[in-house]
């Protein structure tokens, strides 16, 4: 959605380049298993689409439509996310191997990667409606996994504590936005915050 939005509007205004850079890093470190294991054609396709879209979005923001990118409001310090997340992925993981640590890093980083975008909206006090749709579906994507994990726990005995805890954290971070989306955007109003 975000790649599409920038492509058709020719502007990167209102989109956090820092969040998009973090997502590119998330998908790159998560999907290194493209080289080591095959799950399904669907799984492989989606991984490639996520990686391609995240890099395309970064290219659009920082290269093609750089003049329209609102960097002055994109001031979240990403090192405050990357450094602790990097440390934690070395300390708490399923297996102390390079691929597994990178996978863990990507799971932890994804859970907080939206913070620069939410911070940017809180600074500017508004967001375009299509940007709110993007954020809603990005949040919903992980929130639905919570339901899926309960299902898989009961019916397959599958349980991944790292993914579940990170997924809960990620979903909680979206809660305030979900509230605004339902009470404002779904009622036809633009998302604007009181000054």
């Amino acid at each position: 959605i975000v790649t599409f939005k920038i492509t058709i509007s020719f502007i990167a205004l209102g989109i956090s380049g820092k969040s998009q850079l973090l997502f590119a890093l998330v998908f790159t470190t998560r999907y290194l298993d493209l080289f080591t294991s095959f799950i399904s054609l669907y799984n492989t396709s989606m991984k490639l689409i996520y990686i391609a879209c995240s890099y395309a979005t970064v290219y659009l923001i920082y290269m093609k439509f750089k003049a329209t990118y609102d960097g002055n409001h994109d001031t979240f310090r990403v090192e405050f996310l990357i450094v602790p997340v990097g440390g934690l992925s070395f300390l708490v993981n399923h297996d102390f191997s390079p691929l597994e640590i990178l996978w863990t890093f990507s799971i932890y980083l994804e859970s907080v990667a939206i913070l620069p975008q939410l911070f940017m909206i809180s600074k500017t006090g508004e967001a375009e409606t299509i940007t709110t749709h993007y954020l809603f579906f990005l949040g919903l994507y992980r929130a639905l996994y919570l339901v899926n994990w309960i299902w898989r726990y009961y019916f397959e005995g599958f349980f991944d504590l790292i993914a579940v805890v990170a997924g809960v954290v990620q979903t909680v971070l979206y809660c305030d936005f979900f509230y605004l989306y339902v009470t404002k955007v779904l009622k036809g109003k633009k998302l604007s915050l009181p000054a």
């Binding site: 998560r30 298993d33 989606m46 996520y50 399923h94 297996d95």
Partner: peptide, 10 residues
């Protein structure tokens, strides 16, 4: 053990 489990989710 978990290390042998494939990460089959996106």
């Amino acid at each position: 053990s978990m290390e042998l489990a494939k990460h089959d989710e996106l």
